[in-house]
Every structure is written in structure tokens, then in C-alpha cells.
Amino acid sequence: MGSMVPYGSANPDVRRDGSAPAMRGAPVHRPGEMRLGGSRLREECWTAVGARTRQRLAELSGAPIDWFAREDESSGDGRCFAVTLGEAGLSIAEPRVNTEHRPVYAISSFQFAPGSLRHVQIDHRPPPRAAPFGTAAAVPPPGIGLSTSAKGILGNLPPGAQELLQAPFTSGQRILRENWYYEGYDHRLDAFVFYLAGAKDVTFATGTKLIPAGHTDDSAHWSLTCYRASVARRIGR
């Protein structure tokens, strides 16, 4: 079973099936629905955010790893928010209205401690008719402050990925921000991003999902890279 290695120093180790049991009390969740359609894709939303805001996100996050943008339902006017994940930080731009009632972007960032970013690859290839995750749990999993929606998204991921994403938050560290993005088709997701951010740690996963012929959602194949970094300082809220 692979372990996390420093980002940029080596190719990540590979967890070949991602089915290791959750460690340190990290819960394994039941899968929730992952709906598709009904919104602009991330490329269109990214452009709508504007060049100046995109440049600031790039400056804060450093060398890019992944990103997403989508419509902000709370904006009231169809404006978009954006998230960039890089070697230097996790950065978020959210639409706001200033005191002059003009549309602006509020930018926040979790800046990583130099050298703390680590990663591991999860290559999950279950056979057809595999049992859904979480069905063997005799008691409800312990809570770590995730929203119901986040639990549902996490529940679709291999148990090993669920463990890695949640591990820093099982000892009392509060989750301050959570979000995710995916796009694709019923039988495959061409882009998937999920992150959790706290005062001390950030975890995130990026990758793809495929449901091969003869398989179902319960036996979907996932190719993910999971990351973890320590937070040195925060910008914005």
C-alpha cells in the first residue's frame, strides 16, 4: 500500500485498489447522488470570472495542479466563483457587491507551508457487482463537521481516498471550507475535484471516474491523486 510522498520530489506511490479501511477514525460514507447538467461548464465559468481575478488566483496558488469554476447560486445574478489548487496554496474567488453596489470579487487563500505538500495516487479497479462502500458499517460513522452534500460526494470515492481526505480532521480540527466540482457523462467523469480546508491542513483530490461496460456506479473505476498540505497562513476569511 503506497504512502504520501513530497510533491515534486518523486512520482506518487500508487494505492492499487484504494480499498484500505479508514484509519484514525476517518468515516466511510454512503454514496450520494452526483447529478449532471443544468449549469455552465468550468471553462465558460472560468472565463466569466475575468482576467484580473484569474491572475490573482494564479499568483496566490503558484504552479497549478487543478482548478474549477462554476455558477454561484448565492450571487443572485448568475455570477461565477473560481477555485485554484497549486503548489503554493488553495485560493478562492467569490462574487460580492461592494459598498458602492458594484460587483467585485472577494479573494481568500490557504497558503501552504513550503515543502509540506504531499500526494499519493489511488487506482481503484473493483470487479463488476462490487458491494457499495459503507454498506458493511454496523454503526453510523463519526462526524467531523462535513455537510450532508459533502458526505454524499465523498461516499462515491474509494474508501482509501475518503480516509486520506478526512484524516487531518478526525482529531478535532474544524473544517472551514469544503467544495467540489465534476463534469462528464453518466458513464464517466472527465474532471473531478474535491477539497477540505482547515486552519492547519488542506486536503484535496483530483482525477477521473469511469463505469466500464458491465459495471455500475458501485463498481466504478476511479483514477485519483490525493494531496495534503499544512497551512502556513490565511489570506481573507
Rank of each mutant, 00 (worst) to 15 (best):
R56N: 12
T135W: 09
D72Q: 13
R70V: 01
V83M: 00
G160I: 06
R129E: 03
E163R: 10
A82H: 02
G152Q: 06
A69T: 03
D72G: 12
Q111V: 14
E59G: 04
G89N: 02
N98T: 04
V104R: 05
D72K: 06
T99S: 15
Q166G: 05
T148W: 12
P95R: 00
D66P: 03
G62K: 10
E100G: 07
R54F: 07
R102D: 12
T99G: 14
L154W: 04
A113C: 15
G115D: 03
P140W: 08
Q162M: 11
P158C: 05
C80K: 05
A82R: 00
H124V: 10
S108H: 01
G145V: 03
H101M: 15
A88W: 07
E71W: 01
V83D: 00
A82N: 00
A69G: 02
P95L: 04
V83W: 05
L117Y: 03
A113G: 09
A88S: 15
R56T: 14
A136G: 08
L157W: 13
P128E: 05
A137Y: 13
R102K: 14
I153R: 10
P103W: 00
P140L: 13
R52L: 15
R102E: 14
R129V: 04
Q121W: 10
V104I: 15
A69K: 03
P140I: 10
E71R: 06
R52M: 11
R125V: 09
S61K: 08
K151W: 07
P103I: 01
P142E: 03
A131G: 07
G86V: 01
R70T: 03
P141S: 04
R102C: 13
D66C: 07
S149V: 10
A167Y: 14
V104S: 01
F110I: 00
V83A: 03
R129H: 14
L57T: 10
F133P: 06
L90K: 02
A138D: 14
E94A: 08
L164M: 09
Y105P: 00
Q166A: 05
H101C: 11
P141D: 06
G134I: 01
A161Q: 01
E73Q: 11
V97P: 09
S147E: 09
F68V: 00
D77S: 13
T53H: 00
L85V: 00
H101A: 15
D123L: 15
G134V: 06
G115S: 09
V120W: 06
V97D: 14
L90E: 03
R125H: 12
L146A: 00
T53G: 10
W67H: 13
G115F: 07
R129L: 05
L90P: 02
C80G: 05
I153A: 11
S116M: 05
